[in-house]
């Protein structure tokens, strides 16, 4: 392709650029090719290919791992939108396999069982972009320092309960706002307290935003949940169990897509929220024996 010497691939700009293209959209968890078509037809801007949605991982227990490549390829074959897949925290070989399969984004995800109790994947070693979960600003900046091209709230996947995602988004955006008010001396202290690299802390303080897109994940079950996340400062939403664990997935998926675009328009939100059937039942935080969000360091 032309002047190969001047061509660059796998750059930070290309990785963050794809994240930029996914803004204002909905990324849907799918476990079969049929689900993937439903998601694309509803207007998903990407799909996350996995063997079990988080609600089922939570129910089944045991060790949750990267999906079978055959299943991921089956989904890649039927959709034209980007396909993401999950690797375990620290499991860089699963990530190598996903890159070799040609997935468009790797999610180093706390929904799967962690493979390393101290280290996340060195994401600069890859050409494929990574998204990582975070519960607060320090965690988000540590992941960005490791090369993540997109941050998402962790929320509490598989619960259909938005409270944890709200907590994480408010923690991240609230601390960003506080950082913008800090003077230079205070930023040194912020870096210590956040356990994050000082240059990144200074960059966020100057820009008033993360250097990569901030998306919401974990617990979105309704169009109103998606709009809530967007009004709280998320730039896109991931919906895991919320669509395919509901009574009627296709209309719900389409409604969440419209709610994510028109997240400030209450008239449109009212219109698209009508007659969607029952959402997933969901789980209260005090009914839960295991939380995913405390996985990751």
């Amino acid at each position: 392709m032309g002047d190969h010497l001047s061509q660059q691939q796998g750059t930070l700009r290309l990785k963050r650029g794809l994240a930029e293209m996914l803004k204002g959209g909905v990324i849907m968890d799918v476990v079969t090719a049929e689900h993937a078509k439903v998601a694309e037809d509803a207007g998903a801007c990407a799909v996350m290919a996995l063997e079990r949605v988080p609600a089922d991982i939570r129910r089944d227990g045991g060790v949750a791992r990267m999906s079978d490549p055959e299943m991921i390829e089956g989904i890649k074959a039927v959709v034209s939108i980007p396909v993401m897949a999950k690797a375990r925290i620290g499991h860089f070989v699963e990530a190598q396999i996903l890159q070799a399969l040609g997935v468009d984004f790797v999610d180093e995800s706390e929904v799967l069982s962690p493979a390393d109790e101290a280290h996340h994947i060195d994401k600069f070693a890859f050409e494929v972009p990574f998204v990582c979960g975070a519960t607060n600003l320090g965690e988000a900046l540590r992941r960005i320092a490791e090369g993540a091209a997109m941050i998402r709230s962790k929320g509490e996947a598989g619960t259909g309960n938005i409270i944890e995602a709200v907590r994480h988004l408010r923690a991240i955006t609230g601390d960003i706002r506080r950082l913008t008010q800090a003077d230079n001396a205070e930023l040194f202290d912020w870096a210590k307290r956040l356990q994050a690299p000082l240059p990144l802390v200074q960059e966020v303080a100057a820009a008033g935003a993360l250097p990569v897109p901030l998306f919401c994940a974990g617990g979105i079950a309704t169009p109103a949940d998606a709009a809530l996340a967007m009004q709280l400062g998320a730039q896109s939403v991931f919906v895991g169990s919320g669509i395919f664990k509901s009574d009627d997935p296709a209309p719900r998926a389409k409604a969440i897509v419209e709610a994510t675009t028109h997240f400030r328009d209450a008239d449109i939100l009212a219109k698209v929220s009508r007659g969607l059937g029952a959402p997933m039942t969901g789980i209260g935080m005090d009914e839960m024996s295991q939380t995913f969000a405390d996985r990751g360091w």
Partner: peptide, 23 residues
């Protein structure tokens, strides 16, 4: 192709012969 095939490369604008780093 897919994201892994995405690239940056300079292009030349025809009318003024200047280059632009295209993503």
């Amino acid at each position: 192709g897919r994201q892994i095939d995405s690239f940056e490369q300079p292009i030349t604008l025809r009318d003024d012969d200047e280059t632009f780093d295209a993503v």
